[in-house]
Write a protein that binds this DNA or RNA. Structure first.
Lengths: 220, 220
DNA sequence: TTTATAAGTTTGACTACTCAAACTTATTTG
DNA sequence: CAAATAAGTTTGAGTAGTCAAACTTATAAA
């Protein structure tokens, strides 16, 4: 069984690979993600390579092996089911549930996880709209484009928030922008550096290009 | 904040002090309880003493300080609330929920714990009948005597099972002897080495003296 | 009351993780 | 292309936890 620390590194590598265009995770960003120095990350990567969980050519980016990917999806499944529970059952705040799940995800047996999943009605996404991998390790990524990709006048439904940062989520939540909510693209600034949305009648929000890129939505 | 390992030692010391007539925990039994060698236990006790959590005169038993007791009750509260949740909400088996709670109890923030407690309706005991310490660190020990202390013909209600051992709990559960159940003392063997109970009409169970001592009950 | 044994302690070594700082290799950019 | 800088690696040391085995002290039995 992978230790708690190992699981955290693997999960972080998975997320970073997803984000980067090259499909590789850099050591510095990885170190930042798990909250250690780059030297520590390097030595951990060596151990992960020895465990056949990652591929890491010297002085280059890290990628997960098939086994590593399996571990990542396993952790992600636990994480997202727990987040769903914390929000939908315990009514904890959507935007600050991440850290809690981060700790709980390592302490849950497969049996208990399955019971929890059953109790929640086998949800397919978590409160951020992130897909919950199946027990067998399959993920159904939601089709949806960044808000910044739509033109003025379009009516869209928010499907997913890509950032896990607390303050960003807090802002998003307070603006009423959670998955399932329908909004209209009200204005796109000529330079493309900001976007204004109408959330409800008379309530509009302006987002930076950067922020809008982290919110996925689909038509209708 | 106390580390996970420290919390485990403190909890074990609390439990052992409760059990022993001298009110002290021995190093060997403590080591056995947390699953380490006695040498390891000794060195950990030194650290606990440095942290002002225990009093440990050389070559003698260990006792908790006031701070240590507070920590123990805190962990115990988390443990018992989690056990209650696992049994009453997720319908996990009463007799094998202990190990799971053992892992989860270290990963729960005070806020989440309180929400969970609220969700469960602020229970006063866990599924074994063990009292749940209050958030402020008070425990209301149930009055109740061991089954072995009652005489033939007495009608009693089971209030608490004192052992956490899986196989013992499995046996107890299969005999239908959980807290809240009413039984009649059917027979007490002359030598006092076994006791027979009537659980329901036509269903009776025989327990060793030893087993009966670990089941608490009260009149009526 | 001596002595066997159980309880408790110490020592030296190991794993898993961490950091700071010096170092090497890639990548930018003037 | 050369120099600056960013990314990645290595080294040496430290903390938390662990074990096995030698050791000391207390307790129970003969």
């Amino acid at each position: 069984m992978a230790t708690e620390t190992v699981e955290n590194y693997i999960k972080a590598i998975y997320v970073l690979c997803r984000e980067s265009p090259s499909g590789e995770a850099g050591v510095v960003r990885l170190a930042h993600e798990v909250g250690v120095t780059k030297g520590t990350a390097t030595s951990m990567i060596k151990r992960l390579a020895k465990l056949k969980l990652v591929k890491a050519p010297r002085y280059s980016g890290v990628t997960l092996t098939a086994i590593g990917k399996r571990v990542a999806l396993d952790v992600l499944r636990r994480h997202r089911i727990i987040e769903t529970f914390l929000v939908s059952t315990l009514n904890l705040d959507w935007s600050d549930v991440h850290e809690e799940a981060e700790r709980l995800e390592h302490a849950l047996s497969p049996r208990t996880l399955d019971r929890l999943d059953e109790f929640l009605g086998r949800p397919s996404t978590d409160p951020h709209g992130d897909p919950i991998p199946s027990a067998s390790g399959k993920v159904l990524e939601l089709r949806g484009k960044a808000l910044s990709a739509y033109v003025k006048g379009t009516k869209v439904e928010i499907v997913r928030i890509l950032d896990q940062d607390r303050s960003f989520l807090k802002f998003v939540a307070q603006s009423g922008l959670k998955p399932g909510v329908r909004v209209t693209i009200d204005a796109v600034s000529p330079q493309g550096d900001s976007i204004t949305l109408q959330v409800k009648r008379g309530q509009s929000v302006t987002l930076s290009q950067n922020a809008a890129a982290k919110i996925l939505a689909r038509l209708q």
